[in-house]
């Protein structure tokens, strides 16, 4: 219902502050750009370890790119709010800040869903990554759970962006961190013990393992991994909810809400 309401909050948020407004931009940045991204890392990895490794890397990067799309665009929405000087108007409304942030998350979440599905289709058509039949329901479950844990993690960034007007370096560093430590390009079991524990606390790590298992590229217990992923998502959600109120208070204290870029 919320999707088709012309004057609904989600639709208007998208129109007002989202980066990709034209169909042309959408096609390029949601189909061509992810494809390039997959090719890039597939080439990097297969020139290192050989082309039999290609599918493994592409699958990882399909999940990674989804995460990147959600995080970057979610953050960008708040940057745009600052640029337009509308952040304070939003915060000053009687709607709780947490609710505003959560509702704005719907747009990047849908965007991420689209990228994920398109990614899998690209994988199937161009990289010959085909799923064994009969796993479609688990795959759907996995997509939903992955999006959930990623958006919960992204909430951390959204709340941080209340306080810092430019969290871009922080965001880029995290994305690079994810690229290395979430098992996107190689199995996290290759990491030294303490780093592997860290990797297992991040979203995406378990999802990627589960996704590869669904595609028979790895052999793990899928439901077990998905259970962990949900748990991680819930943990980040709790931290984020707490952090939003802390950040709002801090932002009021040092005047960060009023800083426009």
């Amino acid at each position: 219902m919320i999707l088709i309401n012309k004057y609904g909050f989600t639709n208007l948020s998208y129109k007002a502050i989202y980066s990709f407004q034209t169909i042309r931009l959408f096609i390029f940045f949601r189909i061509v750009d992810p494809f390039m991204h997959y090719v890039f890392f597939a080439t990097l990895a297969s020139s290192l370890v050989g082309s039999d490794y290609l599918k493994y890397v592409v699958i990882g990067n399909i999940a990674y790119y989804t995460c990147q799309t959600i995080m970057i665009n979610y953050m960008n929405m708040f940057r745009m709010e600052r640029r337009y000087g509308t952040l304070e108007l939003n915060i000053a409304s009687p709607t709780p800040t947490l609710l505003i942030i959560l509702r704005k998350g719907i747009v990047p979440l849908l965007d991420g869903l689209f990228v994920f599905i398109v990614g899998l289709i690209i994988g199937a058509i161009l990289f010959d990554i085909t799923m064994p039949s009969g796993n479609l329901d688990i795959l759907l479950l996995l997509i939903i759970i992955t999006l959930f844990s990623v958006i919960c993690f992204s909430l951390l960034f959204a709340s941080v962006s209340l306080l810092f007007s430019n969290a871009n370096l922080f965001l880029n560093l995290s994305m690079a961190f994810f690229q290395v430590f979430c098992g996107v390009n190689f199995s996290v079991t290759l990491l030294p013990e303490p780093l592997e524990i860290l990797a297992r606390m991040l979203p995406l790590t378990h999802s990627i393992e589960a996704l590869r298992s669904i595609y028979n590229l790895e052999n793990y217990e899928v439901y077990h991994l998905l259970g962990k992923e949900i748990l991680i998502g819930v943990c980040y959600l709790i931290v984020s909810v707490f952090l939003v109120s802390v950040m709002e208070k801090l932002a009021r204290k040092n005047g960060a809400l009023l800083k426009n870029i």
């Binding site: 990097l44 290192l48 370890v49 490794y53 370096l169 690079a176 961190f177 690229q179 290395v180 190689f186």
Partner: peptide, 23 residues
């Protein structure tokens, strides 16, 4: 953006290479 590209991006690529090398 520049800080990231100049100082941190090489670190990221090299980490990936380092761990893939173990394969």
């Amino acid at each position: 953006m520049y800080q990231f590209l100049l100082f941190f991006q090489p670190l990221m690529i090299l980490s990936i290479v380092y761990f893939l090398k173990q394969v």
